[in-house]
Structure formats: structure tokens, C-alpha cells
């Protein structure tokens, strides 16, 4: 058998009961080639320090809970492998641009508020009864929004976005991508309501088209594209609202 390989994992620790500020701690973790960074963190929790705190669930890049900064890049730790970093040290930190709750766990309440604010559900154009039956949607109508349904709310795009870092009020990539997903759905009639938010001072114009959000997205949602499409939509709404009978969004 080959010799057991060991990697150094530097973890940004923060225990709110005892720490004034986050601090780094290094652990020497034995690993096999099939081990993810998440498994490395689990090894630390099981063998070195049971107080290490991090979120995880599915281990297969679908639940979106194990996002962290891995060597400064926002990634899902379950689909990032230790072998790709060996023999160098791996640094893991809580997701950037979020307040740290404990160790690698961040406070997502701001994100949840933004998510709620864009009304991420179908707002019917007119009330529909059960007797009217199901909605009919063509493959072309389906294709309009399907890409934007893939978001798993992992918030890697928020950790990547320099504008979220500068203005925490910015609605941000994932929430805008989801707003776009419902706006593009042929069953939906909530565009005007969502426009109020997208066209606001916390909306799409905070984006400076860096595009890093789309680069780090593990589900290829391309939130950057959704944001930029909605700059055009918000600009149209801004200028054409004077011509529209309802006056557009407020």
C-alpha cells in the first residue's frame, strides 16, 4: 500500500462566545484521492475539534448548503477535491460578503429577505379555477426560463459579486436570476410588481457587469446574463412608462 498522504487545511474559525474576531487554525488531514474538501472538514470535526461548524447536506452539489471560500474562490466544498490542491495547503473560509455566524456558517437572513422580495412564485395574470384545467406551455415557452430554474440558492454568486460586497442592499445575482425566471414564464403576470424592485436603487443597476457570478455558479444559471437583460428591461420601463396606459411600475 502507498503511504498515507496528508494535506494541511487552514480553516477560518470564529466562535462567537469566545473569539473577538475570526482567526485561522491549521489541521493536518490524511486523505484519499476520492475525498472532497467537505469530507476534509468532516474529518477535522470528527478527529480534531468537534466544535468546527459548517453546513452540508446532500454531498452531491444539489442542496447548495456547503458553499465556502476555498483558496479565496467561492465553491461547493462537496464537489471540490482535496487531490487537486495537494501538496499545497487548502484554505477554507466562510463565504465572502456575508456576516459570519460561527466558523464556516454565514448569516443568510439578508439573502432570504431579498429572495422573498422578488416574489419567487407564479403570480397568475388572472385568477384561474380548477375547471379551467392545467396551463398549456409550448417547448419554446419552457425554453425561455428553464435555465434560470436551476438555481440552488447556494449564494456562491453573492460571495463572488464585488457589488454585493460594496452595497449589501443590492438585490444581487441569484435573486435577480430568479425574478427573471418567473418574469419569463408564460404563466406569470408579475412583471410589473417585480420591476419595482429591479428598477429600484437596490436593483439591477448596481451591477457593473463583472460576470464573476456566472463564472462561479455551479449550476450554470448565468445570473450575470439575467441581470444584464433586466438592465435593458428596466431602461425600457423607465422611458416607456410615460406611454404605457398603466404608467408602468412606480
Amino acid at each position: 500500500m502507498s503511504e498515507q498522504k496528508v494535506i494541511e487545511i487552514e480553516v477560518l474559525r470564529y466562535l462567537p462566545e469566545s473569539d473577538q474576531a475570526p482567526r485561522s487554525e491549521v489541521y493536518k488531514v490524511p486523505f484519499t484521492d476520492d475525498m472532497s474538501v467537505l469530507q476534509g472538514a468532516q474529518y477535522i470535526k470528527d478527529h480534531f475539534d468537534g466544535s468546527l461548524t459548517f453546513r452540508w447536506s446532500c454531498r452531491m452539489a444539489i442542496c447548495g448548503s456547503c458553499g465556502m471560500m476555498i483558496n479565496g474562490i467561492p465553491k461547493l466544498s462537496c464537489e471540490t477535491f482535496i487531490r487537486d490542491y495537494y501538496p499545497n495547503r487548502i484554505t477554507i473560509e466562510a463565504l465572502a460578503n456575508f456576516p459570519i455566524e460561527k466558523d464556516l456558517v454565514v448569516d443568510l437572513s439578508g439573502f432570504i429577505e431579498k429572495l422573498e422580495a422578488i416574489q419567487p412564485y407564479i403570480i397568475p395574470k388572472e385568477p384561474r379555477t380548477v375547471e379551467q384545467g392545467e396551463y398549456i406551455q409550448t417547448p419554446a415557452q419552457f425554453a425561455e426560463y428553464i435555465q434560470f430554474t436551476s438555481c440552488i440558492n447556494c449564494t456562491l454568486c453573492y460571495a463572488a459579486c464585488p457589488q454585493v460586497g460594496l452595497n449589501p442592499e443590492f438585490i444581487g445575482p441569484a435573486a435577480i436570476a430568479l425574478a427573471h425566471r418567473y418574469n419569463m414564464d408564460s404563466r406569470d403576470g408579475g412583471q410589473a410588481q417585480r420591476m419595482e424592485l429591479l428598477a429600484s436603487e437596490d436593483g439591477v443597476y448596481n451591477c457593473s457587469a463583472v460576470g464573476y457570478c456566472s463564472e462561479v455558479c455551479p449550476k450554470h444559471v448565468d445570473p450575470g446574463n439575467a441581470v444584464n437583460i433586466n438592465k435593458i428591461n428596466a431602461a425600457k420601463d423607465y422611458f416607456l412608462r410615460f406611454l404605457s396606459p398603466k404608467g408602468g411600475a412606480k
Binding site: L197, E201, Y205
Partner: peptide, 12 residues
């Protein structure tokens, strides 16, 4: 409540 951004003018 959020204020409408006047950015479309400058962005345009």
C-alpha cells in the same frame, strides 16, 4: 419601499 433608480438615463 424603494426609490426608482435614475440610472437608466446615464446607463443609456
Amino acid at each position: 419601499t424603494r426609490k426608482r433608480s435614475n440610472a437608466p438615463v446615464f446607463w443609456g
